[in-house]
Design a binder for these strands. Structure first.
Lengths: 334, 334
DNA sequence: ATGAAAGCGCTAACAT
DNA sequence: ATGTTAGCGCTTTCAT
């Protein structure tokens, strides 16, 4: 392995000067700089990130933490988009991304421990189970963090405008003449709660009664199958709603499957609106009307905020990303 | 920050002894071990991974490299599954995962450079553009690697049994009475080529002619939209095939969309078989008959092989993971 | 403009 | 069973 000492020896300068060159210090002559750069090139020198981190206490690494309990992980389209966006800006600013789990070295530990041992400069937290004590511990630490789909006083957060999106969905259904609008929620998550809140606000705003039997809790995992199961609940009702607003496209697709399985059809018998606008949404039958959230932007914004924080920014920021209703074929006028 | 020196000072033992305790050396008395462990706990000691890596030349980090050109990245279900599986076993064996890009420190460099600078112990390479010179450079290096969906003499590889899967698909269509079977390929990838090969072998084996106009190249990205476009080609033919085998479920869903858009239906007019078995496959209409590949297993196997290699194994391994035809509703007997 | 010296936190030979 | 010494590759005062 070629080190700065090799370059120093070969050029006759000191390791200090060599180091200065690579760190862009101004107190090195142009000539010396050239010689050192050329020699580095010639010897195939590459810096050693570990050695650098050891002295500078900066790893240029960002930890990425996403929930592990559901088992779906990256398979959910939400994560993919967010991580892609995040990675894009983090990389361009010189950071690498590392997955952070509860375990390290094959042993149980905790997120905070993991972060400290690895010396990450900051952490993005995606869709966490916010009752997890290890998560709380991280939140209360002084490590720079940004939370997605989460609210917090101590850390910066970014999330989609779930409330507005839900209200828009309800208003759209209302405009089509629907009055009996059910809601399938996405488990006990921040986004789920906000969407539920939006549903209720929307209904109330329009003077529509919120019926308890019209609200069903889907499970946390946001899988198609869970959506199917949730819809089954609704289909047991004596008088069916004329529309369902579903807190996730996977869910919605499952729900539509359930409706079809009951010999009913969408949108003829029941109209449906989803949330997310996954790629598949426009290709399922009927093409899904849904609230689009821009996960890529979510990720990019999160990276901006985290890096701001890592680089000394002390202000706790909060970004709410607008969503947009995309009208397709899963709703009909009454 | 608490270091082993703090523990040494407090307990009266030397830093070496403390280090030995944490590294499980046997030449430390039980009593001493206890004292040191307790003190570590009490002081809240956490090891510093960078310092350790600096001396040991082992980072316990695995780089993960996946193609960046297509722009879909993690959004494709394939990646998600593979990475999940990989992460699962890597984590359990003490490794963390870090994304490796062509850039480092915000500057262009190359994969190999990035890996060396970060000191990763090995790299998983997922679906690369194998003409990329930076990729070649990595392949020819001495860094432990495992390749997914790839063939190589110098590195271990793991991939699904694309050929057998394709043959099975063709045989199934044949058994249903289909003779005019078209094929939509997935771009210039290893998997695409293998599936094409399987298609041709299957056709030949059954004595069916392979018509050039029945083979269309989809684009590299495996998106629904590309599948739609590819199918449009096929639909321009004077005599349409009675079935299409499509090298990816996203593709297949797009293709089915195109068929419907032409006023035809699946499977009544054209039968379709996909490849992947993504979650959505059973929820689209018609539910998609497809060749299931187990991306989770792919990932786990890859991790096993890479770690074997990292830990000194010199044998170059090759794993072919079986696939399975899943019959649903997108094909009909002729 | 350049360099000497010390130190980041840890481990590995090599004593004892 | 325990400790001494040196060193991993780099940066950072602080001199000169």
């Amino acid at each position: 392995m070629v080190t700065i000492y090799d370059i120093a020896k070969k050029t006759g300068f000191s390791p200090t000067t060599v180091s200065k060159v690579f760190n862009g210090y101004s107190d090195v002559s142009q000539k010396t700089r050239r010689i050192i750069m050329d020699t580095a090139e010639e010897l195939g020198y590459l810096p050693n990130a570990h050695a650098r981190s050891l002295t500078t206490k900066r790893s240029w690494t960002i930890g990425i933490l996403f929930i592990e309990t559901s088992g779906v992980g990256l398979l959910h389209p939400y994560f993919g988009g967010v991580i892609e966006g995040f990675k894009k800006v983090a990389t361009s600013k010189g950071y690498d991304l590392m997955f952070v789990s509860k375990d390290i070295g094959g042993k149980k530990s905790g997120y905070l421990e993991h972060c400290k041992i690895r010396g990450v400069d900051g952490v993005v937290i995606v869709l966490p189970d916010y009752t997890d004590p290890y998560f709380i511990e991280l939140l209360e630490s002084d490590i720079p963090c940004v939370l997605l789909d989460q609210e917090s006083d101590s850390k910066s957060t970014v999330y989609s405008d779930n409330v507005a999106g839900s209200i828009e969905a309800i208003e759209y259904l209302y405009s089509l003449g629907h009055r009996d609008i059910a809601y399938i929620n996405g488990g006990q998550t921040f986004a789920g709660e906000k969407r539920l809140q939006g549903y209720m606000q929307g209904m109330q705003k329009l003077g529509l009664p919120v019926l308890p039997q019209h609200i069903v809790q889907g499970s946390y995992d946001y899988t198609v199958e869970s959506g199917r199961i949730a819809m089954e609940e609704l289909l047991k009702l004596d008088t069916l709603p004329t529309a369902v607003f579903v807190a996730g496209d996977n869910f919605a697709i499952g729900a539509i499957g359930a409706i079809k399985a009951h010999g009913l059809s969408v949108p003829e018998d029941i109209s449906a609106v989803g949330f997310d606008d996954i790629e598949m949404a426009k290709y399922v039958t009927p093409a899904l009307t849904t609230v689009r959230q821009d996960t890529y932007v979510l990720g990019k914004r999160a990276a901006d905020m985290l890096i701001y924080c890592i680089e000394g920014g002390s202000e706790i920021q909060q970004a709410v990303i607008p969503v947009e209703l995309v009208i397709r074929d899963s709703c009909r006028p009454l």
